[in-house]
Amino acid sequence: MKVALIGTHGVGKTTLCYELAARLKRRDVDVELVREVARHCPLPINRETNEQAQSWILHTQMAWELEAQAHHFLVLCDRSVLDNYCYLLYAEGPQPHWEPLLSRWLATYDLLVKVPLWTRPHWDGVRDTDEAFQRAIDELLDREIARRGLSVLRLEKDQRARWGDVVMEALEPMVAPIPPLFPEEEKLP
């Protein structure tokens, strides 16, 4: 199973990702995090990004997801290919040659969780702090979600304290143990 937190930069995806991973681990769910790929990109990112950098990011995102899925029951991604693609759209415009792969890859996520824009970005050594850029990425992401007809769990910005609970409620049917067909047999010595 694969779950991705999506949204523009600086809205709390990473924090929520770690919270969810801890909660899932406490439930004995075999979970692996796919951390934000862009932070490892050797090429320009943020407003200075280009097609080469975003191609590296998209390919690396896919590779890390494949690696995690090969070894773990649940993969929790701090971003998806879709929000990474939005940075490419911002920098270079439409990329028709990416569309078939993106469409196929988006179908591999069992749940997409949209973290809303609720605060301005803060400098962390990597993140771009330009608010107009942050908003532009958020708008592109919303447009791409609508254009592709994606089903997304949208978190509410005024409910931040409950985000973890909301996502866990959505995950519950996916991670809850399947009840035994013959519960009386489980009681036998």
Rank of each mutant, 00 (worst) to 15 (best):
9 H>Q: 10
9 H>P: 02
10 G>S: 03
11 V>Q: 02
11 V>K: 01
11 V>M: 03
11 V>A: 02
11 V>L: 02
12 G>N: 06
13 K>R: 09
14 T>Y: 10
15 T>I: 10
15 T>F: 03
15 T>E: 07
15 T>W: 05
16 L>W: 12
17 C>Y: 00
17 C>A: 14
18 Y>E: 05
20 L>N: 03
21 A>G: 07
21 A>V: 02
21 A>H: 00
23 R>D: 14
23 R>Y: 01
23 R>G: 15
24 L>D: 13
25 K>S: 14
25 K>R: 06
25 K>E: 15
25 K>Y: 09
25 K>C: 08
25 K>D: 13
26 R>P: 08
26 R>N: 13
26 R>K: 02
26 R>C: 05
27 R>A: 13
27 R>M: 11
28 D>R: 11
28 D>V: 00
30 D>Q: 01
30 D>E: 12
30 D>N: 09
31 V>C: 12
32 E>N: 03
32 E>W: 02
32 E>H: 04
32 E>Y: 03
32 E>I: 00
33 L>E: 00
33 L>Q: 01
33 L>M: 10
33 L>C: 11
33 L>A: 07
36 E>H: 06
37 V>Q: 00
37 V>R: 00
38 A>I: 02
38 A>H: 04
39 R>G: 09
40 H>P: 00
40 H>K: 04
40 H>A: 08
41 C>A: 04
41 C>W: 04
42 P>V: 03
43 L>I: 04
44 P>I: 13
44 P>M: 12
45 I>Y: 03
45 I>P: 07
46 N>Q: 14
46 N>G: 10
47 R>P: 09
47 R>M: 02
47 R>I: 01
48 E>Q: 14
49 T>V: 09
50 N>I: 03
51 E>S: 13
51 E>I: 10
52 Q>H: 15
52 Q>G: 12
52 Q>S: 15
54 Q>G: 08
54 Q>K: 02
54 Q>E: 15
55 S>R: 09
55 S>P: 02
55 S>Q: 11
56 W>A: 07
56 W>T: 06
58 L>K: 01
59 H>G: 06
59 H>C: 09
60 T>D: 12
60 T>M: 12
61 Q>V: 06
61 Q>F: 10
62 M>S: 11
63 A>Q: 14
63 A>P: 01
64 W>N: 14
64 W>I: 07
65 E>Q: 15
66 L>C: 09
67 E>M: 07
67 E>A: 13
68 A>T: 04
69 Q>P: 04
69 Q>L: 15
70 A>S: 15
70 A>P: 10
70 A>E: 15
